[in-house]
């Protein structure tokens, strides 16, 4: 069961900072270890920036998941931007179409337990990540 979803708009650099702060609060509440919190927040920072820079802005839905099986934080980043033509390539380390180091998407995937990406050219991109309490 996902509870209390909080949706943040991502339209400026300040919003990327705000996403990091909200994710930290949720990760602490969910009881993630310090290392797990740090990994989740870092992944969220990368993806929020992608939403801003490549997706031309969008939203982040931050939710605490608390069911019988597991407890953690799930975040959905969605934009209506140009989409990603070649997802496999975009997930490769060293690939970047912008000004990063090219570690954004692939790096973010390594930092979380669950990673899902839905994208199509002209249809925008939705990335869902989650990190669970061990």
């Amino acid at each position: 069961m996902a509870t209390t979803t909080e949706t943040l708009a991502i339209v400026s650099g300040d919003d990327v900072v705000r996403v990091r702060q909200k994710v930290r609060v949720r990760a602490t509440e969910a009881g993630l270890s310090l290392v797990d919190q740090t990994k989740l927040i870092t992944a969220a920072s990368e993806l929020a920036r992608n939403t801003l820079d490549y997706g031309k802005g969008g939203h982040a839905d931050i939710m605490t998941v608390n069911d019988t099986a597991r407890r953690g934080v799930r975040i959905v980043f969605r934009d209506q931007g140009p989409g990603i033509p070649d997802v496999a390539l975009a997930l490769t380390d060293g690939f970047t179409s912008g000004n990063g180091l090219g570690h954004g998407l692939g790096g973010a995937r390594r930092l979380v337990d669950d990673f899902d990406i839905q994208t199509a050219v002209g249809q925008g991109t939705t990335v869902t990540i989650a990190r669970w309490r061990k």
Binding site: L34, V35, Q37, T38, K39, T42, D93, H103, R110, L111
Partner: peptide, 12 residues
């Protein structure tokens, strides 16, 4: 320390 661990995993 947790930042160092995360950076390495990120590939940086």
């Amino acid at each position: 320390p947790e930042v160092a661990i995360t950076l390495v995993e990120l590939g940086l």
